[in-house]
């Protein structure tokens, strides 16, 4: 079994420093759990985040350098030497961040894709058993025909970072001649620094919230219930909907 993990030149959302996204680390963990040869694949120049990602368990990362559309470049590389399994994070960080790349790749290669994978099980007759993580801890078993693309759930177990592995990892530059494909359908628009916008209900409540001093227990219970309901944490009562 040969697995390829797709890596982005991730940057950290808080610091803006290079750092692999959690989903890609989880993807490496899934690939390692399958066993066999595991390599990294990146469309672009060798950037620092790749070495950090490799520290989680990759010996080599091939960097497809030379431009062109990422989907086309990756598809060509995967088509030339098809692995059994391609793994990716839920979405890259630092570029378009749309999470579309694995889907476009699957479309291009005509491979099946499953996302939200938290665990990989056994293979049998060209089928791979996986577990998909859904909201609120729900799980769904699935089987998928190989070769395929799997997007890791952020909560899939992350393999530890080992500096020794990171420093020894080979970032191999593979020159490619870029083909300008349709690939990602670009959205035009104006780009500017991110501005955090408050969510609809008292979000990011860093303080200064409502304080209710020494109410009687019944009053406290009523306020709690209404607040939890307003937050959507508590289903509305049977009689009718009072949800926002």
């Amino acid at each position: 079994m040969r697995s390829v993990v797709l890596l982005s030149g991730g940057i950290d959302p808080v610091s803006g420093r290079p750092a692999p996204p959690a989903g890609e680390i989880a993807a490496i963990g899934l690939a390692l759990s399958v066993g066999g040869a595991v390599g990294g694949l990146h469309a672009g120049a060798p950037v620092p985040a790749l070495r950090q990602a490799a520290g989680h368990g990759l010996e080599q990362v091939d960097c497809l350098q030379g431009g062109g559309d990422a989907v086309a470049v990756l598809a060509e590389a995967l088509f030339a030497a098809p692995p059994d399994l391609v793994l990716a994070g839920r979405q890259a960080r630092g570029g378009e961040d749309s999470g579309m790349l694995p889907y476009l790749l699957a479309e291009r290669l005509d491979w099946p894709l499953l996302s939200g994978v938290v665990a990989i099980g056994a293979t049998a007759e060209g089928w791979l058993a996986v577990t998909i993580g859904l909201a609120q801890g729900a799980r769904r078993p699935a089987q998928i025909r190989l070769p395929c693309i799997l997007c890791a759930h952020d909560a899939a177990p992350a393999p530890p970072f080992v500096f020794d592995r990171a420093r020894r990892a080979v970032l191999r530059v593979v020159p490619v001649t870029g083909e300008e494909g349709p690939g990602m359908v670009a959205v035009e628009g104006t780009e500017r620094p991110y501005r955090a916008r408050p969510r609809l209900i008292g979000t990011a409540s860093g303080g200064g919230g409502t304080v209710l001093e020494h109410p009687d227990p019944a009053e406290a219970a009523r306020v709690l219930r209404d607040h939890l309901r307003a937050l959507g944490m508590l289903a509305p009562p049977r009689e009718g909907a009072a949800d926002a």
Partner: peptide, 9 residues
């Protein structure tokens, strides 16, 4: 976009 450092309208 860009790792939540930028946004696009």
């Amino acid at each position: 976009v860009g790792g939540m450092r930028r946004e696009r309208a």
